[in-house]
Design a protein around this nucleic acid. Structure first.
Lengths: 346, 346
DNA sequence: TGAACGCAATGAAACGTTTCAATTTCGTGT
DNA sequence: ACACGAAATTGAAACGTTTCATTGCGTTCA
């Protein structure tokens, strides 16, 4: 029955003009008690639902904020999304969560969709490192905030974690446990996160006076558990086997852990393992995982607030901000010195 | 520069009428090559982006499908969402993934948002068991498909798993291992999934000629890891301690596992554990988790296809379908007859 | 040569709101 | 009783598309 009830049906039913109905909805204080009650009743009776579509057309922008993440199945991003959602809901905005799956083509497809939808703004973790995503958004005049990726403050807002620092913390931790041959398992290198964490690790290695070959990159094409399993298998085939592995995220680490276990390689006794993100499952893993913790929900919330500030705020008065949060190393069994020197045994 | 470029700007620039520009975009074959090229060039030059808002207003419906899940942070739903997203993208529709967090009030808030947005359709896992969600959608004339929840075929489409069967499979498995005192850890009982899985377990217990008290429900208020930890703690305080636990989902099971471990209770030696969903992390847990597997991505894809059929299809010709998929028990260490040190697994 | 036709292109209506200037109604003070 | 300002209501324009009945024009056929 519903679906075709418009504001003018309500107006007729209540015996007033459309303008008055609109006012009852948006500026109740301008309408007399009498009329307001009558209109409200008509709305109720007819089951009228305002068309946000038409409202948006007039207003020029929608009440939806888009969020584009690298992997919806990664609990880290799910947590970021939850944080953002909460903040945006308080501002009466809907969130459209989408998944670029790390693909630049899907990313640009979604960005086009967002542009056509005239979304209020976009929270995005770019899959493309070349800045094309940012460029696209800027040229289309869509407000955005980069999530989990940094940007010079004059180019736009961003909320990120210092990934270089995170990488160096992880590797420094392994070095101090005596490891001298560390592998880095990381997804496609065009992802900034993957590169930065690698860079941080390399920095730590050099700092320790070791050659770059002490930190061996092992490319993986995705950042999920099954890619981790593949990497684990390749790891076992390496000539002088690394004694420690640092993974670009926890999903990879869990995959690596599974492969190693299946092959009878013990963690941390034979190989130490460190992940990244500290997702909830890291602590519950077969061997509780040492990981670099990122304050996921806070990242999401902060990004959402920045976006709100930019769109709602004093318009031209907004100045972009680059917010960089600090990661934190959480040490668990997977990298704890197994009471013996892991250097060169067997 | 962009943002305010409309179809009429393009028309002026190309020296044609707005109708022609519209045709170039939507019915290129109606326009002469000459004009088409000229218009395309103008579009390019001006950076014109079609306003889907206006287009929708005219068409009466949008190109967005909403998806409302119980918990975005649960990898099971993330997987379902991915499956649905893929199918809908192929149909050139955007997906708006939202999180009711199992709350009926958030659920109805979102349903209102969807109605105002005039979304094309909704994929929903209702938090409300009373059918109010379905009633709301139907009364507003919004096409929908129930996900992970069944519905009589005359009431609408649904794609679900036989949760009663799943519950009975899990409990039968535990009974056959000799357990006679089994606890059930389940989220809010108003969730159909939680009740059905319980019902299945009860069925198995009765079938074995045991009293209902052999299957002890332990209420948890949410379905996540931390609720599982709480439940684990309560579990340990029970007078005659259960020898096995069946959890309504894997997150709870992982939480229970953590509590038990922390208290020095061994799994499966002291207490056997079975989860539900078989999320990717179940296999990687401290003790690999026995679980009831649900084909998550397939559920999502199927639901999306059903929705497409209902909205695009031969309109009135569509008949609702109730699709019920079968779950599958995956046995791992957490419930294996103890007796000896468990071997490795996959 | 004129009629009939088909293809391109046009221009205005319609979609459902919000906004705002104009109008009506009301209450009050003189 | 009158005028005046405030309060309430109205009606139409505008938002950016799509759709569709028309118009304009060049071809073909008789």
């Amino acid at each position: 029955m519903a679906g075709k009830v418009g504001i003018k049906d309500v107006a007729r039913q209540a015996g007033v003009s459309v303008g008055t109905v609109s006012n009852v909805i948006n500026n109740p204080e301008l309408v007399s008690d009498d009329t307001r009650i009558r209109v409200r009743a008509a709305i109720e009776r007819l089951g009228y639902v305002r068309s946000d579509t038409a409202r948006q057309l007039r207003a020029g922008q929608s009440r939806i904020v888009a969020m584009l993440v690298l992997d919806l199945a990664n609990p880290f991003f799910a947590e970021v999304a939850k944080g953002a959602e909460r903040a945006l809901r308080d501002a009466d905005l809907g969130v459209m969560v989408c998944n670029s799956a790390g693909s630049t083509s899907e990313e640009s497809e979604y960005l086009s969709l967002f542009a056509e939808q005239r979304v209020r703004g976009v929270l995005v973790t770019p899959a493309d490192t070349s800045g094309r995503a940012v460029e696209t958004l800027r040229s289309r005049g869509i407000p955005f905030v980069l999530v989990d990726r940094s940007l010079p403050a004059d180019q736009g807002c961003s909320v990120s974690i210092d990934d270089v620092l995170g990488g160096s913390m992880a590797v420094r931790h392994l070095l101090s446990a005596g490891h001298r041959r560390i592998a880095y398992v990381g997804g496609p290198m065009h992802l900034a996160q993957v590169r930065d964490r690698y860079a941080g690790g390399l920095e730590a290695v050099r700092e320790a006076g070791l050659g770059d070959d002490a930190f061996l990159p092992l490319d993986s094409d995705r950042l999920d558990v099954s890619a981790g399993r593949d990497a684990g298998a390749r790891l076992l085939g390496l000539a002088p086997r690394p004694t420690a592995v640092f993974c670009a995220n926890d999903l990879l680490a869990l995959g690596v852990l599974q492969s190693l276990y299946a092959a009878g390689v013990r963690v941390p006794h034979d190989i130490a393992l460190v992940g990244y993100d500290d997702i909830e499952f890291a602590a519950a893993a077969a061997v509780p995982l040492t990981s670099v913790r990122q304050p996921a929900a806070r990242i999401g919330r902060t990004a959402a607030e920045l976006l709100l500030q930019e769109t709602d705020g004093a318009e031209a008065a907004h100045t972009h901000q680059r917010i960089v949060l600090q990661p934190e190393l959480v040490v668990r069994d997977s990298s704890r010195a197994a009471a013996s020197a892991p250097a060169s045994n067997t």
